[in-house]
C-alpha cells in the first residue's frame, strides 16, 4: 500500500502534478492545500499525472471538479494525464470524463494549454 505523495514541477506555464497512492477523503486535503497554494500564485494551468494513482474516491473527484471550475474561471484548467485503466473505467462510467479532459501523453496534456 503506497503512501499518498504529491510531486510538483513546472513545464513552462503549466504545472505538472504527479499523484502517488490513493486519493480518498483522508488524503485529498493535502492535494487541496497544494492546489490552493498554486491558485494563490496565479497558476491556473494544471496537469495531474495519475500513472501511480491507486484509487480515487468521490471526495477526490469532487475536489478535482471544483478546482477545474475555478481554474477555468481564470482561463486555465485542470487536466488529467495517464489515468490507469481501472480508474478511467470508473470515472467514465460516472460521467466525470465528460467534464474533465483526459490525456494520454505529457506532451499532449501540456501542449493542450499552448494550443488554446
Amino acid at each position: 500500500m503506497k503512501d499518498f505523495r504529491i510531486d510538483h514541477e513546472s513545464r513552462g506555464p503549466v504545472q505538472l502534478i504527479r499523484l502517488v497512492g490513493s486519493l480518498d477523503m483522508y488524503s485529498f486535503p493535502r492535494l487541496e492545500s497544494q492546489l490552493n497554494a498554486l491558485f494563490q500564485q496565479g497558476r491556473y494551468s494544471l496537469v495531474l499525472d495519475c500513472r501511480d494513482l491507486d484509487y480515487i474516491g468521490s471526495a477526490g473527484l469532487g475536489a478535482l471538479i471544483g478546482f477545474a471550475k475555478q481554474a477555468r474561471e481564470h482561463n486555465g484548467d485542470l487536466r488529467l494525464l495517464n489515468v490507469p485503466e481501472r480508474i478511467y473505467k470508473i470515472i467514465e462510467l460516472l460521467g466525470f470524463t465528460k467534464v474533465l479532459q483526459v490525456h494520454q501523453t505529457e506532451d499532449d496534456a501540456v501542449g493542450s494549454f499552448q494550443a488554446k
Binding site: G62, I65, G66
Partner: peptide
C-alpha cells in the same frame, strides 16, 4: 457534474 459541483457524489 454539469454545474461542476465539488461534492454530493
Amino acid at each position: 457534474l454539469r454545474e461542476m459541483k465539488p461534492g454530493g457524489y
